[in-house]
């Protein structure tokens, strides 16, 4: 997977978007990760009869094919359901640009190769205005450099956990990495004996 890409943005700028909006709970009775993209934002995207709501950004042809979601503050609040990033990846998003993220969502997203990019208020506002003026403007995301190039020509550096960045760039499998510690884990268990608590 390339970690440098350019993409258009779909704006969803309200703050505190929760995971129940990203993927409503009634779709969680699944035992796989696939097919969730069509349920992404289901209650905002579709009306009661299942028809697309015209005002919703993901239904706007001008934002068709957008691989970046431009969100507000505290994106992904609420439940720990990994179905939320699964739905986004299944839909075709590669990154979310926001003012800030909820912790569990951000962690889950990175584990699925979905970049979470927090911008300063100023840069976020500049991007919002660019996208509002022209939905076809593109951002260029570069994970290695930890930068996102905005349509106005400016380049913003974004924070990311150094270890997660390394894992993504090198394609390291997190469970495999963790299993590398099995000797230490066994030693830890041995040292504590049979006591159940810490």
């Amino acid at each position: 997977m390339s970690w440098s890409f350019t993409a258009t943005c779909a704006p969803l700028l309200r703050d505190d978007v929760d995971t129940d909006q990203i993927i409503p709970a009634r779709f969680l009775t699944t035992t796989t990760k696939t097919g969730l993209g069509e349920k992404l934002f289901a209650d905002w995207r579709y009306d009661g009869s299942g028809a697309p709501r015209p005002g919703f950004p993901l239904n706007d042809p001008a934002h068709g094919g957008a691989q970046v979601l431009l969100a507000g503050a505290n994106f992904g609040a609420g439940s720990s359901r990994e179905h939320a990033p699964w739905a986004r990846v299944d839909y075709g998003f590669r990154a979310i640009v926001a003012r800030s993220f909820a912790d569990i969502f951000a962690g889950n997203a990175l584990k699925n190769g979905l970049l979470v990019i927090a911008l300063t208020d100023e840069a976020h506002e500049a991007l919002r205005q660019s996208v509002e003026r022209d939905p076809q403007v593109r951002v260029q995301v570069d994970l290695e450099a930890q930068t996102v190039a905005l349509p106005d020509g400016s380049k913003e550096r974004f924070p990311i956990d150094g270890f997660m960045k390394h894992m993504l760039l090198e394609g390291i499998d997190e469970l495999g990495y963790l299993r590398g510690f099995l000797p230490e884990i066994a030693a830890f268990e041995g040292a504590r004996g049979a006591a159940p608590a810490g």
Binding site: S80, G107, K111, L175, L178, R179
Partner: peptide, 19 residues
């Protein structure tokens, strides 16, 4: 609370990677 990837990590190793 943890995501499902981490549920797998705990099942397999009884550990999590945490900051």
């Amino acid at each position: 609370g943890i995501g499902t990837s981490q549920v797998g990590h705990v099942l397999a190793t009884q550990c999590l990677l945490q900051r």
